[in-house]
Design a binder for these strands. Sequence first.
DNA 1: GACACCATACCACATTCAGGGGAGTCCGCC
DNA 2: GGCGGACTCCCCTGAATGTGGTATGGTGTC
Lengths: 225, 225
Amino acid sequence: MNRLKAKKPIQVALVEDDPLLRANLAAMLNSSDGFHCQAAYADGPAALRGIRASRPDVVLMDINLPGMPGTDCVRQLKELAPQLPVLMLTVYDDSKQIFKSLMSGATGYLLKRTSRDKLLEAILEVHAGGAPMSRQVARQVVQFFQKADEMPVTTRNASVVVNLTEREKEVLAVLAKGYAYKEIADQLKISFETVRTHLRTIYEKLHVHSRTEAVLKYHGHEGGR
Amino acid sequence: MNRLKAKKPIQVALVEDDPLLRANLAAMLNSSDGFHCQAAYADGPAALRGIRASRPDVVLMDINLPGMPGTDCVRQLKELAPQLPVLMLTVYDDSKQIFKSLMSGATGYLLKRTSRDKLLEAILEVHAGGAPMSRQVARQVVQFFQKADEMPVTTRNASVVVNLTEREKEVLAVLAKGYAYKEIADQLKISFETVRTHLRTIYEKLHVHSRTEAVLKYHGHEGGR
DNA sequence: GACACCATACCACATTCAGGGGAGTCCGCC
DNA sequence: GGCGGACTCCCCTGAATGTGGTATGGTGTC
């Protein structure tokens, strides 16, 4: 954050629909040595038009844009400037969003709660040829590969479910038939709360965040990312 | 690198066949606040035996081990301690090696020319739940996703879904991938409320009362109830 | 034109789910 | 004989879901 003193600043373009956040980010960039907010756009189409002409060094893009999703915007941006690094900003560390962004061409992926310093560091990093990711994001990406490794063998519900204990498998099996928590509790003769405790650890082990995702994994569907 | 002052140091286990490098790394760790080199192994089998008993917080592993490749070692390590984070060290930023490591279960991937500070930072990072990667590695990982921009679409849906209108089928298809209502709304470019309206009529037509039941019908599982 | 049907959208209320704690028993293993 | 893992149970909070009603514009049909 302290080198680049006399060098020309990194030209950053912003794409963010929230006016307040947009202004804050721009101000933050312009008050930081080595950075310059070249332009700020409120939506995808405007960004595409502007960036085509102005050629920034780095783009900071909100993933939730009105009208055109950030991921679509990245994809089109990458078509007209393949080398241009794009940093996605999001409030969610949801794996579906992450992979969608990365597949669309995003170069890095940061959570919005990233601190100012980390954000500036990430801009430098991406400009230097890296691929900065927030901690949670990086871990998800890495886990993707570990899951992908189990995939080809797809012994249906055998491979994904292996880490689960016997009881957890029972709970998941009932869950996967569509029963509500209290019904699962009745069937297994345990309390509602115990069902929830099991489900929590099951979700953790399967890397999912909703019963639907868990059911999809159980049935080997491996739901969309 | 300066927090964790009075806290218990992170217990690190080393796996590195080069005696000199091994000693250097151990010394470096032990001379750094907040870190402790708990053990250092020269090969995979020794590491597996030792780590099973000693339960370190983090493992630093050379990818080029004599006898057993580092990737195999990681795989076995992950079987006996799935939560244990493993940082791979390598001189190559070869993409095949990187992906093999990640698929084997490595949590982070650093080039050996990484500086002392960056290395310590990476250990903290991985211990805090992240997935530190050297710049070159991160970029390769991201590029992987951009090349793999396809998806296995297995949606054979004809059975129960016939009574539904076109739009309803679209909604159900996205629902069945595990997306939340608001995500469905984003994808179909309609409002959250409209998604809910569609879902209501879908549930009615399918005679179900929860998304899990709907998903099961959609995938032809019929669920026992 | 009246009518049915579809897609869109909003409000309100109750229930369910998801994630964060903590905590006690039992059992096996070093 | 302590320690960890599995299983059990409870509390709290906030988000997501399920169900009821209502409404507008478009489209096609009789």
